[in-house]
Simulated scan of single mutants.
Amino acid sequence: MKVLVWLLAFFAFHPVFSQIFQDEVTANFAYQVKQIDEFIERFNNKENTLIKQYVKKKDTTAQFKREQMIKGLFNASDTSWKKAEILQFIGQVSNTEDPVYLNFFDANWYAEVNCAASYKGKPSTITLILKIQREKNGMSKWIVVSAIADFLRLPIRKDTTTGLNPLSHATDFMNIDLLTTDKKNIRNYLPNHYQDEVLSVFLYEAQHNQLVIKQVNKITYHFLQIDGWIFTVNRFSRQTRNSGWLLSKLLPVTVSAKQKYAHEKLNLPDEMCQFQTSYR
């Protein structure tokens, strides 16, 4: 607190330094990627981006190469980036003969929203996976396509030997009560390919006031619509020009690896894990 008071007093009596400080704050704000929409605009090198307006006020002759715009969207504080992969990725999407752009209404990008919640009166967490849905009237909205929480899933099999004996019919299925009493091994009474109906459980618990979402803790955006790649975007809150919503992870992947990622990381149902070889 004393340091802050000293700085304010210093800038008050030294207008030159105060102006420099204010200019740097203004520059940081201009360069900051403030919304995911702005991330998409910069990725596509749109003319109306705020950063271009800011730079052109200072230099009307400034040129903006798409490659440089995309490089500026990477989290520069991460030292684990593989330069060759970044260059390959940027070269692919900025290829002048066959460029790749992002669209807010693309089908295969998702918001992973980690939330603080209350489940049956106890503090808990739940992760919701959302995507954009376009309506027939031209409007759009975010919708929940999956949810991730331990209380939404059936327990993992404890004893694979249990189940309804193949001769149960001979006793008129007199042991059918196991379906409701053997809770730890309930998966043994279901098909091997059964997928948890997490959204159905989510809606049931919410409608019966067992589940209450309190607040959003963290958001990660997953972009899966570019051939051969997956990348994530997170918010980095800091007083630098490289701040805001930035590219936090870049993964070169095959189609099958992308399907696995969608199923295991985002918990998407099988019908949403089918990817084509082109998204242009």
Rank of each mutant, 00 (worst) to 15 (best):
V3D: 06
V3F: 04
L4E: 10
A9E: 10
F11N: 06
H14M: 09
F17N: 09
S18F: 06
S18Q: 13
F21W: 14
Q22E: 15
D23Y: 06
V25S: 11
A27L: 04
Y31C: 09
I36P: 01
I36K: 00
E38P: 09
F39N: 06
I40L: 10
F43P: 00
F43Y: 15
N44R: 04
N44G: 05
N45M: 08
T49A: 10
I51W: 08
K52T: 10
V55N: 04
K56T: 15
T60K: 13
Q63F: 12
E67V: 10
E67C: 02
E67Y: 01
Q68F: 12
K71N: 14
G72Q: 05
N75M: 11
N75D: 15
S77M: 11
T79C: 05
S80Y: 12
W81K: 11
A84Q: 14
Q88K: 14
F89N: 07
I90T: 07
Q92P: 02
V93S: 02
S94N: 12
T96N: 10
N103I: 06
F104A: 10
A107H: 05
N108P: 00
E112I: 08
E112R: 03
N114E: 14
A116S: 13
A117L: 02
S118M: 07
K122Q: 13
P123E: 12
P123F: 03
S124T: 13
I126T: 07
T127V: 15
T127K: 14
K131S: 10
Q133C: 04
W142T: 09
I143K: 05
V144Y: 03
F151V: 09
L152R: 06
P155L: 05
I156L: 04
I156M: 01
D159E: 10
T160Q: 02
T160A: 06
T162S: 13
L164Y: 04
N165S: 15
L167N: 12
H169C: 07
A170M: 10
D172Y: 07
N175C: 01
D177Q: 08
D177N: 05
T181Y: 01
K183D: 11
R187H: 02
L190R: 02
N192W: 00
Q195H: 06
V198R: 07
L199M: 15
L203P: 00
E205A: 04
E205W: 01
A206H: 06
V212Y: 00
I213W: 00
I213Q: 04
K214P: 00
K214V: 06
K218S: 04
K218R: 10
I219D: 00
H222Q: 11
F223Q: 09
W229L: 07
W229T: 08
T232F: 03
R235E: 14
Q239N: 14
N242I: 12
T254M: 09
K260F: 04
K260T: 11
Y261N: 09
Y261M: 11
Y261K: 09
E264H: 06
M272T: 03
